[in-house]
């Protein structure tokens, strides 16, 4: 199953992330440091992509990790791995911030000067699997039709609905629905084949 890609090989095994989250419950600062070092980059990458503004992205990332520190009990390890949970939390916060500002057009105009240069992520222990998975996701999505990829990105990074995407791309609603559905299924099948 798809879940197997993310879960430890033995069902009784506690993932490193879950163990760190358990230590957060004991107010263990070093566990927080470890979790931050493991995941702050991808969280920041996602939030920055959504908000397109470094200062606001840092505020949201800080908010996400403080929320984790103060509400670690909200993560239920039995319902899935930690990182997707954290990314979902970060995406929701970032999209909330995006909607709150409602300055999408102005942001696009300022994009060139606001976006920082791409930062090369230094290798660190345990990042290999994640880097490999990231590479695979990019490869699989690159195989999609450009408009199909764009439709998925508009949904994920900008929080647009099918109708809003159809309007933005000037394409029929049914076509947009088909692109997104088909694109997600192809990504899923590709990741399953990889695992």
């Amino acid at each position: 199953m798809f879940l197997a890609v993310f879960t430890p090989s033995e069902s009784n095994e506690v993932s490193p992330d879950a163990a760190l989250v358990n230590r957060l419950l004991q107010r263990d600062v070093s566990a927080f440091e470890d979790l931050y070092d493991r995941h702050s980059r991808i969280v920041y990458t996602l939030v920055l992509r959504i908000l397109q503004q470094a200062s606001t992205a840092e505020e949201v990332v800080q908010d996400v990790f403080l929320h984790l520190w103060r509400n670690a009990a909200q993560y239920d390890g039995s319902r899935g791995p930690f990182l997707p949970w954290l990314l979902t939390l970060a995406r929701n916060r970032a999209l909330d911030q995006l909607r709150l500002k409602s300055e999408r057009q102005r942001r696009r105009e300022e994009q060139a000067e606001e976006l920082p240069p791409v930062v090369a992520i230094p290798d660190f222990e345990g990042s290999l699997d994640e880097k490999r998975r990231a590479k695979r996701v990019r490869e699989l999505v690159a195989l999609l039709d450009p408009k199909q990829k764009r439709a998925i990105e508009l949904a994920y990074f900008e929080g647009l609905s099918h109708s809003e995407i159809a309007n933005a791309l000037q394409e029929p609603l049914g076509t947009v629905k088909g692109w997104i559905r088909n694109g997600l299924l192809r990504l899923k099948e590709g990741l399953q084949a990889t695992s």
Binding site: I42, P84, V118
Partner: peptide, 24 residues
């Protein structure tokens, strides 16, 4: 549950970036 995991993988489509050490 599976779909949420799948969707979270789309984060890797974003250009890689790292927060400032100051944030840490």
């Amino acid at each position: 549950e599976e779909a949420r995991l799948l969707v979270s993988q789309l984060a890797y489509l974003a250009p890689e970036a790292a927060p400032l050490d100051m944030l840490r």
